[in-house]
Design a protein around this nucleic acid. Structure first.
Length: 570
DNA sequence: ATCTTAGTAAACAGAG
DNA sequence: TCTCTGTTTACTAAGA
């Protein structure tokens, strides 16, 4: 017990790179990686590079086969991948990654066989464009090539970072109308993926840079190769992968919904097609690259997902981003992110990504309890819910289980009740609402940061544009709106009223019953007396609904419960 | 600077 | 004895 706690402490030390890279390095169900994957220094192997390169080319391939409706999606993915590769390029440039000349050629050659001539033409145009761009960059004192012996094959791995794939306001992208002569290099450099609106777009950095030169200096000085940048890069890669997973699932769900409703999408399977195609291309390779067994392999070619737009910032909060260290002031409480909708929309994300959920233990426990039909859970069932719902909680067991028990005991809102099957825990909604802090006044900067996150705001807009472009009337459906702008607006304007604003929502199984009073459960054995509480919040207590997402929990022997429908909770 | 809240660690006790 | 459950205390950190 003590030993386990000690190891957990070590692992959750912020400097521990495993906490960041665990998603890709997780090799066993327990997630007790010990750095044996050679990944602990944040290095990105040539295999990773090839993987990314392959992804990039797959995107190009798919784009040729897609209609315009998928372009926005694909282009957003390209942007994300550019960001990844930009980071990797930095690593390469600084000698962290040594790509052997022969290695880079392999996927290109194989892809040559798979691509039609026009695809290849486009690809090599891109390659040529980037080469010219690199030359132009050199003239600015930026040597992007560390290995001059690497010609086309190596350059191919660097295709995307310098290609300005910024979406146009209409959702189109300049990727297919490249002007890649050196005379345009200013245009290219002026649209650096990490630079926009006079700000550095590096995750978590909003440094003001008057011009590109200043930005480049800033980039090289503040975001040079170090542990932090490397970790951020890896996290960003994981984020993208998870977003791709999410999109694939949401697209599949959409197809099923539309099929069920006898709606005929303008291009059947238009969403999944590229995903499957790309996945099939690179799946086997990624399997060999250490993608965890339990994790679904992210589709290589995917577009901006729905839910993580809103959820992105919360996931990528400083703490949860790295999945390490204590998280204070989770925004479920601070920003009143509706935990139910958040979990309902991103349950797969939290299930698969080793990302700490941006909720307090108390809110998670409450959610777990309230989503059960009888609104009561044993401690073990609460444990099970945590491990089922969050990959993060499949490890650090000593830490979070203790925290769960601690919260159950500490908070008056959790009431222990003896019933026939032993002690169960229930939620006293009145007490829970009492303990919630006052309404958030809404710091513009804070809210802005939450929404923008790692540039998800633009992705979100593009995604909506793409949806609109796809003539998907579903965009106006509450679900989708909640996933995108609607959710953001909710976050902006609802604040703590999220409780009352969603209270009327009914879950799919119709259980919109209010939170039952603890007295409704058998005879109460013990009610804790919580120390001094702020009673200033006299708002009427809202009725609560709940969300249940049954998630398989590999590696855990505990019960796999029924799959329950979802409903809004807060 | 102070207070509140949350997360973590740990000690301890009781029950099975 | 061991494990699980539950309680409590202490400490730290973040945010207001």
């Amino acid at each position: 017990m003590m030993v386990e706690s000690a190891t957990e402490t070590i692992r959750t030390t912020p400097s521990n790179q495993n906490g960041v890279s665990s998603l890709s390095s997780q090799s066993d169900g327990g997630g007790r990686e010990g750095g044996s994957n050679g990944d602990t220094n944040g290095e990105i192997s040539p295999v990773d590079l090839l993987h990314l390169q392959q992804q990039q080319v797959c995107v190009c391939m798919c784009q040729q086969q897609l209609g315009n409706k998928q372009l926005a999606f694909q282009q957003q993915l390209i942007q994300m991948q550019q960001l990844q590769q930009q980071h990797i390029l930095n690593l390469q440039r600084q000698g962290l990654v040594n790509l052997q000349p022969g290695q880079g050629a392999v996927p290109i050659q194989s892809l040559q066989q798979a691509m039609c001539p026009t695809d290849l033409q486009q690809l090599w145009k891109d390659v040529a464009g980037i080469q010219s761009t690199e030359e132009a960059m050199k003239h600015e004192g930026l040597d992007l090539t560390t290995n001059s012996s690497n010609t086309t094959s190596y350059s191919a791995s660097k295709v995307s970072p310098q290609i300005p794939h910024h979406p146009l306001p209409n959702g189109q992208n300049s990727v297919h109308t490249p002007k890649r002569d050196s005379s345009n290099h200013e245009e290219h450099t002026a649209s650096h993926p990490l630079y926009g609106h006079g700000e550095c777009k590096w995750p978590g950095c909003e440094a003001l840079c008057e011009d590109m030169g200043q930005f480049i200096k800033h980039l090289n000085s503040e975001h040079a190769l170090d542990d932090r940048s490397t970790a951020q890069c890896r996290v960003q890669m994981q984020v993208v992968q998870q977003l791709e997973i999410q999109l694939a699932k949401e697209s599949e769900r959409l197809q099923a919904m539309m099929t069920h409703l006898h709606m005929r999408p303008s291009e059947p399977k238009s969403f999944n097609q590229p995903l499957n195609l790309a996945s099939s291309v690179s799946l086997s390779k990624r399997e060999s690259e250490g993608f965890p067994e339990g994790l679904p392999h992210p589709p290589t070619s995917a577009a901006t997902p729905i839910t993580p737009m809103r959820q992105g910032p919360s996931v990528i909060s400083s703490s949860s981003l790295h999945g390490v260290g204590p998280i204070r002031r989770r925004n479920s409480d601070k920003f009143c992110t509706p935990i139910a909708s958040e979990l309902a929309q991103n349950c797969e994300f939290y299930k698969n990504a080793d990302v700490r959920p941006p909720f307090t233990y108390a809110s998670l426990i409450r959610h777990a309890i309230l989503e059960t039909p009888d609104r009561q859970l044993t401690l073990n069932e609460i444990y099970n819910w945590f491990t089922r719902m969050f990959a993060y909680f499949r490890r650090n067991t000593a830490t979070w289980k203790n925290a769960v028990r601690h919260n159950l005991s500490l908070h008056k809102c959790f009431v222990r009740v003896e019933n026939v099957k032993g002690a169960v825990w229930t939620v006293d909604e009145v007490e829970y609402q009492k303990r919630r802090p006052p309404k958030m006044t809404g710091s513009p900067t804070l809210v802005k940061n939450m929404i923008s996150g790692l540039g998800f705001g633009s992705l979100n807009a593009s995604y909506q544009a793409a949806l609109a472009e796809s003539s998907l009337g579903l965009l106006n459906s509450p679900t989708l709106m909640n996933n995108s702008t609607g959710a953001s607006l909710n976050m902006l304007h609802v604040g703590h009223d999220d409780v009352s604003s969603t209270v009327e929502q009914v879950n799919s199984n119709g259980s919109c019953s209010p939170g039952l009073s603890p007295q409704q459960y058998g005879h109460q054995v013990h009610v804790k007396e919580e120390p001094a509480e702020m009673e200033e919040d006299s708002r009427p207590v809202s009725l609560m609904a709940s969300v249940t997402q049954n998630l398989s929990m590999p590696g855990d022997e505990r019960d796999m419960d029924e799959e329950l429908p979802t409903e809004e909770l807060e």
